[in-house]
Design a protein around this nucleic acid. Structure first.
Length: 275
DNA sequence: GCGACAG
DNA sequence: ATCTTGTCGC
């Protein structure tokens, strides 16, 4: 089993990237792109009871202050069973193709915390913001999270990562226009003809698709069906809830911070003058 | 110079 | 990711 050792924020940039590439290559050896759980093989996913979603939201001005969130929803009802939001200090920079080295450590930690506190609520599959094997080196954040947590994982990207011949060109736009109803899809093919992922019209009222790719321990067919079955709106509910709750947490955290800043100033003279 | 750039 | 309110339309 490979280990993610690159904490290389202090090293020179190309040194850091080489380090990250090496870690991606090592972890990639452990990716499984086939269904590995019983529930994945039946049409209604019977046996599937918990779906997880993770996300990071950033504090508006800052580049290092963020809220990492993990939610677990019931399936198929999509009710929130578990929520974990926590402020974190993000040290690694965002570099396209290396998103996982910036965000995954906090998300993996959140999964570990859940396993310790509420092992019975461990999700059976995890949805991640971003891509799986649809990636420059075939190892996006959904693969990264899957390997490090051991969970089946699906990548759901809101924008197309243009790699391996994939492009947001006229052909692509035509293919999008051909998606008529919710549930319609078209494959995302690499230059060599391999299927890297699927564009899915996840919500009838939204023209813009989401881009689904395999993360870990799951086939693309299962991934697409599962994501679609988790959609009340364009973004699948587990990720949407993680997103909503991490933003809300930041909003409240900001109030608490400003209150804490103004309070000590008053305290010295407020003790007797307050009603 | 121009386009790309998951989050 | 974030800057950003209301608004026009199905």
């Amino acid at each position: 089993m490979a280990t993610a050792t690159a904490v290389a924020a202090q090293l020179p940039k190309d040194e850091t990237l080489r380090c990250w590439e090496r870690d991606q290559a090592q972890l990639k050896a452990d990716v499984i792109e086939q269904d590995t759980e019983e529930w994945q093989s039946n049409p209604s996913f019977s046996g599937l009871e918990r779906v997880g979603g993770v996300d990071l939201s950033y504090v508006k001005g800052e580049d290092t202050s963020a809220c990492a969130s993990l939610v677990v929803l019931s399936y198929p009802d999509l009710e929130v069973l578990y929520e974990d939001c926590r402020m974190v200090v993000v040290d690694a920079p965002y570099v396209a193709g290396f998103l996982a080295f910036r965000e995954a450590p906090f998300l993996v930690e959140a999964v570990r915390r859940l396993e310790e506190r509420q092992p019975g609520l461990r999700p059976q599959v995890l949805l991640a913001d971003g891509n799986g094997i649809l990636h420059h080196r075939g190892f996006g954040i959904a693969c990264h999270l899957g390997v490090l947590t051991g969970l089946p994982c699906i990548g759901v990207a809101k924008n197309l990562l243009q790699v391996d011949g994939l492009a947001n060109n006229e052909l692509h736009k035509e293919q999008i226009q051909d998606l008529q109803a919710g549930g319609d899809t078209f494959p995302l093919l690499s230059i060599s003809g391999r299927i890297l992922g699927m564009a899915l019209r996840s919500y009838t009222k939204s023209t813009k698709p989401v881009y689904i790719s395999v993360g870990h321990k799951m086939s693309l067919q299962s991934a697409v069906r599962l994501v679609h079955s988790c959609c009340k709106y364009r973004v699948p509910e587990p990720i949407r809830q993680a997103d909503i709750r991490s933003r809300e947490y930041i909003r409240k955290h900001a109030e608490g911070t400003s209150a804490a800043l103004s309070r000590p100033v008053r305290m010295s003279e407020d003790a007797d003058s307050e009603q």
